[in-house]
Every structure is written in structure tokens, then in C-alpha cells.
Design a binder for these strands. Structure first.
Length: 287
DNA sequence: GTGTTTGTTATCAA
DNA sequence: CTTGATAACAAACA
């Protein structure tokens, strides 16, 4: 379940690997993951370079040299794994490539770059997608579908109060609402609530000012700490090198139902269903 | 065959 | 128009 920290980690990795490399071929093994007509999709990619890699919420954005943009959404089980091609030594002998089993049965789209390196878009459940859009289409998508970015300067206390103003939904649903705040998914919503000491089912409009401030601070700190640990691998997430994220070792509530709370050392983590999602919290230290 | 998983969107109600 | 709640969908696996 790649959320903001996982997507950010992948973007940072890929910037070092594929910027300015010419794409010489695209192989599409599952057409349903491409949201354009296949010939158009290929035509707008092959022969171009990736000029820049950015992210909005959980959406990855490749700026292509042909002036189009490639959107990549990993949804639940998507992976973007990069591998060097076989390197030819001066003597013409090829060095062995680390065997990570790429491509595997879930490698649905494969990019090959001019140096022989490859980018594999794997997705076991095939919920993810790739889509080529123009600048105008991109601007429209970004403006209409995404709220505050937690890592940007405009995630201020004043803007956070505005975002929460007169909201009557639960804090869990609010954190998952991409149009309010971009990039938070099920894992980090629960972790942010725990760090804030607030039960995820609480109504936003009944939070005290100090609780809203705790949420604001916890959002930044949880996300930044998760990025430092290169994200959370709960089931399928891996970074661009195919490695797991280490923040799974620092989770306090997600997937911890039935165990003793590590923060207060008294409560037993409960799991409930909220906003249609599995939701974890400590009944003792979250009020 | 059934229940479960989450990111996103559709749909309906107010 | 906005907001909120809920259902539905994608595919795989225990």
C-alpha cells in the first residue's frame, strides 16, 4: 500500500537512476493498466527522455521530453523496480546481473532505456495504472483532486485549521480524503491518530484546538520519520531497488491488534471498521 | 465459494 | 454547488 512516504522514496530513487535517459522501448503485457490507446501511449513515450520526476499525493508524475506527462498510480500493490542492464566490460565479457526475478509474472509494463537498464511496473492486483496526459490535463487533475501537501510550505497551522473548519466527518475519513490532505492512506492515518492521542472515530468538529494542533504536528512528524526509514512494507511495497521499507518496525498501531500498546504499555490495540477501512487504535492512550 | 485487503470513484441523500 | 456516508470495483489469496 504505497502512501506518500513510499511514493516519495520511489521518486527520489528514480530521479538518480533514469533522469535524462532515453527510453528505447515499452513492452505492455497487460493492456488494462494503460489508460490511453496503446499505439498513442507508446508513440508518446518511445524516443523521449524523462526530464523530471515529481509527486502529488500518491500520484507519480514523469515529465517527458516530448512535453507530455506520464502519470503512474501504484494503488494497492503496484511496484516500480529499476534494474541495470548487463554491463559490458572492456574485454567484452558481461557481468552477472543480480537476480531479483525481473520480470516476474506481475511485470505488466516494461521500459527499456538506451543503456540497457529497465524499469518494471509490477502490480499483482492490477489496480494501478499508467496514463499519458498533456500539461492542461495534468493541471486539471492536480487542481481538482488534491488538497494540501504535508511536506510543502503551505501545510501551515493556519491552512490546517481552514481545512478542518466545520468538517463533520470522522478524523479518519478526513485524513484519507485526498482532496483535503494529499498522500495519507490507511496505515499513516492510524499512526497519525495514535501519535496525536486521538481516537480515529472522533468527529473533526468536536476536536479541541489543541487536538487539532497535535494532529497537524503528528502528520508532519510521522510522514517525515517514515520517509527517513524509506517507507513501510506491510505486504507488497518495495522501493525502486526492490528493497523493503523499514518503518514497519516503528508502527505503533497498524496491524498491532491484540498486542499491548508500545506507547502507554497498558492498552491493548483494538481493530475496528471505520470509513470502510480496517482501523487500529489504543483505547487507553487515544481519547 | 467466501471473506478480506485499500485507493479511488460512483451514487445517493441532505 | 458542497459534504458525507456508503457501496462498488479492481485481483489474489488464505
Amino acid at each position: 500500500m504505497p502512501e506518500l512516504p513510499e511514493v516519495e522514496t520511489i521518486c527520489r530513487d528514480l530521479r538518480k537512476k533514469i533522469i535524462n535517459k532515453k527510453i528505447v522501448s515499452v513492452v505492455i503485457r497487460k493492456k488494462n493498466l494503460v489508460r490511453n490507446p496503446i499505439p498513442i501511449f507508446k508513440k508518446k513515450i518511445v524516443g523521449n527522455k524523462v526530464d523530471a520526476i515529481n509527486r502529488r499525493g500518491k500520484l507519480i508524475i514523469f515529465k517527458l521530453s516530448g512535453r507530455d506527462f506520464l502519470l503512474i498510480h501504484l494503488k494497492m500493490t503496484g511496484q516500480l523496480i529499476y534494474q541495470q542492464g548487463e554491463k559490458i566490460t572492456a574485454g567484452g565479457h558481461s557481468l552477472p546481473r543480480p537476480d531479483q526475478g525481473m520480470p516476474n509474472k506481475f511485470s505488466h509494463i516494461i521500459f527499456t532505456f538506451v543503456d540497457g537498464s529497465q524499469l518494471f511496473f509490477n502490480d499483482m492486483r492490477q489496480f494501478g495504472y499508467m496514463q499519458i496526459v498533456s500539461q492542461i490535463e495534468l493541471d486539471d487533475i492536480l487542481v481538482n483532486n488534491y488538497g494540501i501537501e504535508p511536506l510543502l510550505d503551505n501545510f501551515t497551522w493556519a491552512n490546517w485549521q481552514k481545512a478542518l473548519h466545520e468538517r463533520k466527518t470522522s478524523i479518519k475519513a478526513l485524513l484519507l480524503n485526498q482532496k483535503v490532505i494529499a498522500g495519507i492512506g490507511n496505515i499513516y492515518a492510524d499512526e497519525i491518530c495514535h501519535k496525536s492521542g486521538i481516537r480515529p472515530g472522533r468527529s473533526v468538529n468536536k476536536l479541541t484546538l489543541s487536538e487539532k494542533r497535535k494532529l497537524w504536528q503528528a502528520t508532519t512528524s510521522v510522514i517525515k520519520r517514515a520517509i527517513v526509514k524509506r517507507g513501510t512494507t506491510f505486504s507488497d511495497y518495495v522501493d525502486a531497488d526492490g528493497h523493503s521499507g523499514l518503518f514497519v518496525d516503528y508502527l505503533k498501531v497498524f496491524g498491532k491488534q491484540g498486542t499491548k500498546c508500545k506507547a502507554c504499555k497498558q492498552g491493548v490495540i483494538k481493530k475496528i471498521r471505520l470509513a470502510g477501512r480496517g482501523t487500529h487504535y489504543c483505547p487507553n492512550c487515544q481519547k
